[in-house]
Design a protein around this nucleic acid. Structure first.
Lengths: 140, 140
DNA sequence: AACTATTTTGCAACATTGTTGCATTGTATT
DNA sequence: AATACAATGCAACAATGTTGCAAAATAGTT
């Protein structure tokens, strides 16, 4: 995994630093999306808050991660698929936020249908955020 | 319009206060959604920040306004349709955020298609946020 | 392996956004 | 008009995000 992480950084012309490796590792391990808060805690005060902010910004710009809209004022981030690069995201996929456990899933296999927008509106990106109960919580 | 606003407050068993009237008026005049920031500025330092926060909270609880997910850490609010009440929102409609002018539209007439979620996932609410260029900016 | 240019980090300070407790004020009801 | 209740404003605080700059780490070159 370490190698994959280093490859990802190199592919995006980013220098290999401890914080970037660690944060990418957290994303790889996470089964869902992460907020700044999660990263700050899961990395165990290893890095400065500012470093985390800047690292996340850099990753978004490079198209390594993408932001997920939410209605609760905490931006969540998740790994992008391969075809995002240089800030041009193609993540028209569905996100699911579980009201019970709080996990945010990227449902890559659910495709976002074409929408009939009113005359004159041109869509660049479509985000779908579904909230409800996830399979893990429903089974329990 | 004043009468409509007062009716709305009465219908929701809220006492008629200056701040509630003013904030509802701002929503009625706005052609899109408003963030706390917008309200604070458009009301011209007339009310305390805390009052605005609490008023927005109250309105959301009563189903007068609803929140719109966004990826930029500023919750936006918009007026609900008639059938939202008591915190039970039925706003499965499409929101459009213009990258050019920043306006957030509620596209009430664009219906949200049914999604095929993976086994075990139960959807309670679906939010669709489209970003791009609105008709006003495209025409200019 | 050492040197150097460049990038990244950590710190400090600050700005913005959101929350809570409590005394004061305003609203609704009798 | 008097009372009970709810809402507001203030202060203080907590959380989140940003900026400038010196110190440290990285990458490329010799």
């Amino acid at each position: 995994m370490q190698q994959t992480i280093i490859d990802t950084l190199k592919r995006n012309q980013l220098s290999i630093t401890d914080s970037r490796k660690k944060i990418l590792e957290l994303f790889a391990k996470a089964n869902g999306a992460l907020a700044h808060f999660d990263i700050e805690h899961q990395s165990g005060a290893e890095f400065d808050r500012v470093t985390i902010y800047r690292t996340l910004q850099t990753f978004v710009e490079k198209g390594i991660i993408h932001t997920i809209p939410s209605a609760d004022n905490s931006i969540r981030y998740a790994l992008c698929k391969e075809d995002c690069a240089g800030g041009h995201h193609h993540d028209d996929h569905v996100h699911f936020m579980c009201d019970s456990c709080g996990t945010t899933y990227c449902l890559d296999h659910v495709n976002v249908p074409q929408l009939d927008l009113p005359k004159g509106f041109r869509a660049v990106q479509t985000d779908v955020v579904v909230s409800g109960v996830c399979s893990k919580c429903a089974g329990a």
